[in-house]
Design a protein around this nucleic acid. Structure first.
Length: 263
DNA sequence: ATGGTCGGTGTCCGA
């Protein structure tokens, strides 16, 4: 089974390159974040024509929004974590073998890393705390669970281009990385990118739009993640960060993260 | 130390 996660920052604007990804990489399941599209405007037909018959979406006007597109049938869940807001940041489906797949878009958190003065940062921390509690309550580590998405946190020293320079920058601050570590403990999750890429090797999935020469300066961050519960770790077969997609026409600032399983 | 660019929407907000 091939699974891809990608923050595409508008599904309507990005439709041509999403179809290109499907054509090139032929995933069984594609999880999208930041679709920025109300459900009634979601381009179902284009994805169904590409072979992705099974679609679960949760979108809204202008912001946020998620989609799971699949060749494999699934049962859509009606669980959504909103954490005090009307945001669309969490959807889930159950696969035929019972594996539960969660697609997450954790809040970015604004600029100021102080929950006292910045509501968006407070919301981000609360969101991670709530997901941590919920995963621990909902599951035990022997169950098959996958969590993917744009977590908007680069947890490790080598998940950012400069650990020292980003310690005070939202996405890599200790309150965020400590909370994400707790969330990782909620189900003894395996961080799939670090399962395949050594801990001391730089690894990024996002490069800012503000840096035109993103490839040369390479000031990236690893904000996108695939986590699996322990029983699925032995099924992992491969992993690719499709950095080339950052140079596709009208690119997203995130690139696809591809994971292969033998199930 | 600062500002740099996107997308959706509506003349700004969120990333």
């Amino acid at each position: 089974m091939r699974l891809i996660t990608w923050n595409i920052n508008s599904v309507r604007l990005r439709l041509p390159i999403v179809l290109r990804l499907l054509e090139q990489k032929q995933p069984d399941i594609l999880c999208l974040q930041e679709t920025k599209c109300p459900d009634e405007h979601f381009p179902h037909e284009a994805f169904q024509a590409a072979g992705y018959e099974h679609i679960h979406i949760h979108g809204m006007k202008s912001y946020n929004g998620l989609a799971i597109l699949s060749k494999i049938p699934f049962e859509a869940s009606d669980i959504y974590h909103r954490v005090g807001r009307q945001d669309c940041r969490h959807i889930a489906v159950t696969l035929p073998d019972g594996t539960e797949l969660h697609n997450l878009y954790i809040p970015a958190g604004g600029d100021e890393p102080d929950p006292e003065v910045n509501d968006k940062f407070a919301h981000k921390l609360n969101f991670v705390d709530e997901m941590t509690r919920w995963f621990a309550d909902q599951y035990t580590p022997d169950q098959k669970v996958i969590a993917v998405g744009d977590f908007n946190i680069a947890p490790g020293e080598h998940d950012v281009w400069s650990h020292k320079q980003l310690l005070g920058v939202v996405s890599h601050t200790p309150p965020e990385t400590e909370r994400l570590a707790k969330m990782k403990g909620s189900l003894d999750w395996v961080d799939v990118s670090r399962h395949f890429v050594p801990e001391d090797e730089k690894c990024y999935t996002w490069w800012s739009y503000r840096n035109k020469d993103w490839e040369k300066s390479n000031r990236g961050r690893r904000l996108d993640h695939v986590w699996v519960s322990p029983p699925l770790a032995e099924a992992l077969r491969g992993h690719e960060i499709l950095t080339a997609a950052r140079n596709w026409e009208k690119p997203s600032d995130h690139v696809p993260l591809i994971v292969d399983f033998k199930l």
